[in-house]
C-alpha cells in the first residue's frame, strides 16, 4: 500500500470538505501515513471468496407502510437553521461570485 503524499492529503481534505492550515496538513500527512502503514498488514490476509460483512446481524430492509403519520413540525425543524429568511434557508452562492 502506498504511503501518503502531501498532494494526496490536500486532495482528501478537499473531498472531505475540511479546511486545514499548513501546519494541520503537515501533521495529518505524518499521522495518517503512520496509521496506514500500521494497517498495511491487512493486504497480506487471504480473503479469497470471503463475502464482505456489511452488518453484524442479518437485516432485511423493511418497507414502511404507505400511510401518512405525524412528523416534525416545520417550525421545529427550522429552528436550528443558522441563517434563514422566513421558512427559507439562506445559503451563499453555489457558484463562486454569484451572490447570496
Amino acid at each position: 500500500m502506498p504511503s501518503l503524499t502531501r498532494k494526496e492529503v490536500e486532495e482528501i481534505a478537499l473531498l472531505a470538505r475540511l479546511h486545514m492550515d499548513e501546519a494541520a496538513l503537515a501533521r495529518m500527512e505524518s499521522e495518517l501515513g503512520a496509521i496506514l502503514e500500521h494497517f498495511s498488514s491487512i493486504a497480506a490476509v487471504d480473503t479469497t471468496d470471503i463475502p464482505p460483512m456489511t452488518h453484524a446481524v442479518p437485516i432485511e430492509l423493511p418497507l414502511r407502510v404507505d400511510v401518512a403519520f405525524p412528523s416534525l413540525d416545520a417550525a421545529d425543524a427550522l429552528r436550528a437553521v443558522p441563517k434563514r429568511d422566513g421558512d427559507l434557508i439562506v445559503v451563499p452562492a453555489i457558484i463562486a461570485g454569484s451572490g447570496e
Binding site: A13, A16, R17, M28, P92, A96
Partner: peptide
C-alpha cells in the same frame, strides 16, 4: 460561496481527532 462554507464550517467546527478519522475514512 457554498464550497467555502462547507470547508470553513467543518474546518472550524471539528476537532483534530474527528478530522483525522474523516480523512482516514475518505481515503
Amino acid at each position: 460561496d457554498l464550497l467555502d462554507l462547507y470547508c470553513k464550517t467543518r474546518g472550524a467546527g471539528f476537532g483534530p481527532e474527528v478530522k483525522r478519522r474523516i480523512m482516514l475514512g475518505t481515503y
